[in-house]
Design a protein around this nucleic acid. Structure first.
Lengths: 149, 149
DNA sequence: CATGGTATGGAAAACGAGTTTCATTTTCAT
DNA sequence: ATGAAAATGAAACTCGTTTTCCATACCATG
């Protein structure tokens, strides 16, 4: 997983400047590696660090970090784009467990579905290059809470 | 799979009226059972049938047909909602093969991923209720065309 | 250490898919 | 045929996101 220094280097490679605002947004992203923040959540956290940061700067920086491969979009089908740090070691998309109770999003690291690609090719003549899986249900924490009610 | 008559009956059950506009939109949906139309595409086709049909009516009718279980949303992660007829015989979501060359969307009927739900529960304590799978790649037609170039 | 050109920032306007409002028209049970 | 209720189309409005505008900051040069 990338660290702040490596991301600074990547910016410099592309001749983008490391500004205070970008640093603040980068810190937010790094401090929330395991989360799937929306632009609005990033703006809120950024304004806490520095009230002089504008929403357009946050959106621009999000797109910049997308372009240089630091973060990527995650669609959870609620009309809001979320963002997630890219792990350059992963060759393929990972998948998401989405809790219907608390809304928490967890990653499924292992690609448990890879073995089906051959089956899909044989049945449909469709050559698979990638797949994205969203698994809905109830997370551990929420199902424990439900038990004790 | 539902036919025009059954859908008309369903409308009547809920005391919704069958208007010319709703009939036109219904016909478009029935004539494109195998497609995954966006609202914009439905509006375009509806205007061809009857130029006096308004976009808001199409959006309203789409939501109406969703409510009474005629169509359902399909998210393809491009920010545009698409719609697909519901087959009442299917108990669970089916999945989608999306061709990266021609953009065509095909359904995967069999639920090939069901056996993994237990595995996800054991590993993550996450109780799966549903999952949506999007498989990207190159469809049969497109890969044949590529071969002959 | 000026100079000028490029990059950056924030505010506000624009965008676009989708929704709502409201005055008018259509439907359908009577 | 009639009138209450429902449906319609045009236009206004959301709301997340993007772009524009222009002033300011940066940085490699003369």
């Amino acid at each position: 997983m990338l660290n702040a220094y490596q991301i600074g280097e990547t910016l410099r490679e592309y001749s983008y400047k490391m500004t205070l605002q970008r640093k603040a947004i980068l810190d937010i992203i790094l401090q929330n590696r395991d989360k799937h923040l929306s632009a609005e959540e990033i703006i809120e956290k950024a304004k806490k660090k520095n009230p002089r940061i504008g929403a357009s700067t946050v959106y621009r920086t999000i797109r910049l970090f997308e372009k240089i491969g630091v973060i990527q979009q995650v669609f959870l089908n609620d009309g809001i784009m979320r963002y997630h740090m890219i792990n350059p070691d992963e060759k393929r998309e990972h998948h998401h467990l989405i809790c219907k109770v608390c809304g928490d999003v967890m990653d499924v690291k292992e690609d448990i579905f890879e073995i089906f690609e051959d089956q899909i090719f044989r049945k449909n003549g469709f050559t698979v290059t990638d797949h994205r899986v969203k698994i809905y249900g109830i997370c551990k924490k929420c199902s424990e809470e439900i038990e004790y009610v």
